[in-house]
């Protein structure tokens, strides 16, 4: 075989190996991560606050009354299918007001199997947390809840959550009238280095 032919064959080999190495080593998906703003609790575990600024973080409001639902032109099935279910969806921010995920909140006061309020908070780079809230607010005005399940980074954790609605905000943002805060306190299983 001529030197030209050998160079060509070597090129083919190099192309196969190079493409393989590139595909293997370069990640096809590289999710953006914000630094977690976590504080350590005195009795163990980590505390983290998720914020939802209203109305700017609101994606969906599904109410029994179709005309009260958001966004505009939403065809919400309403009372006929879902009873008095209140479904909401929001963007979720960290303590620095940077969007880090999305969340859904479902609540029903007259569900046949019992009233409920619950959250699913999805943080793309970390996982999802599923939170069940108490129906009655605490004397302090917030609502307590527990972590029912977590996925990926939250899979082995257990803990509690506080949901509070803040109206008197000291902010210069023109599109923020109120804020929902979810303050989580999660702890790893015994023996976990966390």
């Amino acid at each position: 075989m001529s030197r030209l032919g050998k160079t060509f064959i070597f090129g083919i080999f190099l192309g196969i190996v190079g493409a393989g190495a590139l595909t293997y080593t370069v990640p096809a998906v590289d999710l953006h991560r914000e630094a977690s703003l976590i504080s350590v609790q005195t009795n163990g575990g980590n505390a983290e606050t998720y914020r939802i600024d209203l109305p700017r973080d609101r994606i969906l409001v599904g109410l029994p009354a179709q005309e009260a639902s958001l966004p505009a032109e939403l065809k919400w099935p309403g009372e006929e299918v879902f009873g008095n279910l209140q479904a909401e969806m929001f963007k979720v921010r960290d303590r620095n007001d940077v969007v880090i995920g999305v969340a859904s909140r479902l609540a029903s006061a007259s569900e046949a199997t019992g009233p409920f309020i619950e959250w699913a908070v999805h943080l793309p780079a970390r996982g999802t947390v599923y939170l069940q809230m108490d129906l009655a607010p605490s004397p302090e005005g917030h609502r307590n809840g527990v972590l029912t399940a977590g996925t990926r980074d939250f899979e082995t954790l257990s803990g509690t959550v506080i949901e509070q609605f803040i109206t008197d905000l000291d902010t210069e943002e023109y599109d923020v009238d109120g804020r929902i805060e979810l303050i989580t306190a999660f702890i790893g299983p015994l023996g976990d280095e966390e």
Partner: peptide
Amino acid sequence: LLIGISLGASLF
């Protein structure tokens, strides 16, 4: 060499 590399990458 370049044609070979292109062909190799395409084969992969």
